[in-house]
Design a protein around this nucleic acid. Structure first.
Length: 572
RNA sequence: GCCCCGGUAGCUCAGGGGAUAGAGCAUUCGCCUCCUAAGCGAAGGGUCGGACGUUCGAUUCGUCUCCGGGGUGCCA
């Protein structure tokens, strides 16, 4: 059980016992660590409701809690705070329990089947930083959800069936290229060129639209070309995702949903939801209570081709049929918020997600834009889109320089692996320390810096701990003892907050909560480490306790970093 | 036009009705005869964009406003 829930239950019971609403018993980590470890502010609103002095209520609650041996103190403070300090004995036994439990005292949650969509790469375009965000947030949510007990199916959902394919095919025709001749690099050049051309050349744009419609209607020659292009692209995508250690259980694409478009259209037609509008087929999804504009969702374009809304709907149909999930989660750019609202509503109205006594819930978890130092979307120096593969290469080579200039001697053979681990940690933590929903500024130098709140800092902390544990191989770890200093207590007090951070990250789909607790834990450990010379300590029992505390710290760091997809290097 | 999301220290960001608004970077000053100094400590630095309102209490909630970003049917 996590500490905040436990304490909230205790304090709520105290409120109830004194005749107040138990809902006032919410406990939070104190914002005045000099005064207490945890606090409850509920006496203030409780007093407001009853029109009495809040300090009196706080006093009653504190008195109620004072007999509880888990607290070293329970005090009322003006104007009406209840301040709680944990006893060293309770804190120590809590950590002993934590050390003995593989799951860090977190029970498995009720198992849900969740399909997660965190890829969305376009097979005609190279990966860029936007895909990085989707990939690492999604990947972390997969790892976290599995840790908490859920069944997750990660799907890359390739963008392989839209206008982008028609554009590429049309451009290849113009250049007289055969699909077999097109390499990954060619493909990465052809699409932007075709996209640009379509904006100035109307007849070319028309041709691309026609090719798209033909491909979607099953033209065998185009299908063959498309298959070749797709294979070339997927090979490159796999390489990038593998480098990042982002994994998917399914490599389905929009094209795999194509065969489910007819049944979906049938459902929409049977239910009388389809309407012709300006030559296209649309479904009305607006509700009377909508405050924001809610245009109808387009299902079929004037020229008969389908667009991403249609394939997304068909994909939902497929997911319901194949996985019968409880939930479907999407991690994409927040610019697609309206789009997802539309398809979720459409799916709901059409009943695509119901059946078998289970109604799948769809949720979009949007994220902000990755910007450069100028605050505008991240670009290369010459203003082009920064390719993810270039970015990874660049961060890895920067990391390699740092590894080579390290004070620690590292074998030549290891440097490459460590550089990749550091580079990916820099990218992942650099991204995820920002709240998911916000834009952030991408600054590789800062992410990879020697000092600061970075992925490598967290890794370094774990590396130091492991180094001590290796050197301590001759000593036996023993039971964790009550803290011998303030810095040790501070370290210990941080540990029960780890399960809460995981639950918060899950509730908000925000890995930044995990980063927060990691920096707190690592910072407190480094202070402890600086102050106490573990291996030199004369008292055997104390030393044994510290070794156990180190092991627990290491395990907490490793679990948290593992959920963020960050590995701990052997040396650094 | 309408609708979303931001504006907190020089920079990058936390916090989100309550106690003295916190980190990291940068700046200045300290700490390796001792387990990895990619570490630790200290100092300076804030009218929480602006105005009004609700409240015992607002950086946090509401209204308006300024600035920035995004969305608003045949791209994804």
């Amino acid at each position: 059980m996590n500490i905040l829930t436990t304490l909230t239950e205790t304090v709520s019971a105290a409120f109830a016992k004194r005749g107040y609403d138990a809902a006032y018993g919410g406990v939070t980590v104190s914002n005045r660590p000099d005064l207490c470890h945890y606090q409850c502010n509920g006496a203030l609103p409780a007093a407001k409701a009853k029109k009495v002095n809040p300090l009196v209520i706080a006093g009653e609650i504190a008195e109620e809690l004072r007999g509880d041996s888990r607290f070293a103190s329970a005090d009322a403070a003006p104007p009406g705070f209840v301040n709680l300090r944990l006893s060293d004995a309770f804190l120590t036994s809590l950590l002993c329990d934590m050390a003995a439990d593989k799951r860090l005292l977190l029970p498995l949650m009720e198992r849900r089947t969740i399909v997660m969509d965190y890829g969305g790469p376009n097979v005609a375009k190279p990966l860029h930083v936007g895909h990085l965000r989707s990939a690492i947030i999604g990947d972390s949510m997969v790892r976290l959800s599995r840790f908490l007990g859920h069944a997750v199916i990660g799907d890359i959902h390739l963008g392989d069936w839209g206008l982008q394919m028609g554009l590429v095919i049309a451009e290849m025709e113009e250049r007289g290229l055969d699909a077999g001749d097109v390499s990954l690099d060619d493909l990465n050049e052809i699409y932007p060129a075709a996209s640009a051309r379509s904006k100035t050349d109307a007849s070319f744009a028309e041709k691309a639209a026609v090719r798209t419609a033909e491909l979607q209607s099953g033209d065998p020659a185009l299908r063959a070309v498309w298959e070749r292009l797709r294979a070339t692209s997927v090979e490159g995508l796999r390489r990038s995702y593998d480098q990042m250690e982002v994994f998917f259980d399914r490599w389905y694409g929009e094209s795999d949903a194509d065969r489910f478009i007819p049944p979906v259209i049938d459902i929409l037609r049977e239910r009388g939801l389809l309407r012709e509008s300006e030559g296209a087929l649309v479904v009305d999804v607006a509700l009377p209570e909508d405050k924001e504009p809610m245009p109808p969702m387009m299902v079929q374009k004037t020229n008969g081709a389908y667009i991403y809304g249609t394939t997304d709907l068909a994909t939902l149909y497929q997911r319901k049929r194949d996985f019968d999930p409880d939930e479907v989660w999407y991690f994409t750019d927040n610019r697609q918020s309206l789009h997802f609202k539309q398809i979720f509503r459409c799916a709901e109205i059409a009943g695509i997600l119901s059946g078998g006594g289970k109604n799948a819930v769809c949720r979009h978890f949007p994220f902000g834009t990755v910007n450069g130092k100028d605050g505008k979307p991240y670009k290369t120096r010459d203003g082009g889109v920064m390719r993810l593969s270039d970015l990874i290469d660049s961060v890895t080579s920067n990391a390699l320089e740092k590894v080579k200039s390290s004070d620690i001697e590292i074998e030549e053979a290891e440097t490459g692996v460590i550089a990749r681990q550091l580079g990916m940690a820099a990218l992942r933590v650099g991204d995820m320390q920002n709240h998911r929903t916000k834009d952030y500024i991408f600054d590789m130098d800062r992410f990879l810096a020697t000092e600061g709140k970075t992925g490598p800092y967290l890794q370094y902390t774990a590396v130091r701990i492991r180094s001590v544990l290796v050197k301590a191989a001759g000593f036996k770890p023993g039971a964790i003892l009550p803290p011998a200093s303030d810095t040790e207590r501070d370290l210990m007090l941080c540990m029960p907050l780890v399960p809460d951070a995981l639950l918060r990250a899950f509730a908000d789909k925000a890995p930044s909560a995990i980063c927060d607790v990691l920096f707190e834990l690592a910072g407190r450990f480094n202070r402890f480490y600086f102050e106490h010379k573990i291996l030199q300590h004369p008292d055997e029992e104390r030393r044994a306790s510290w070794l156990s505390l180190l092991s627990l710290t290491d395990r907490l760091l490793t679990v948290l970093l593992g959920i963020l997809g960050v590995e701990v290097p052997a040396h650094m």
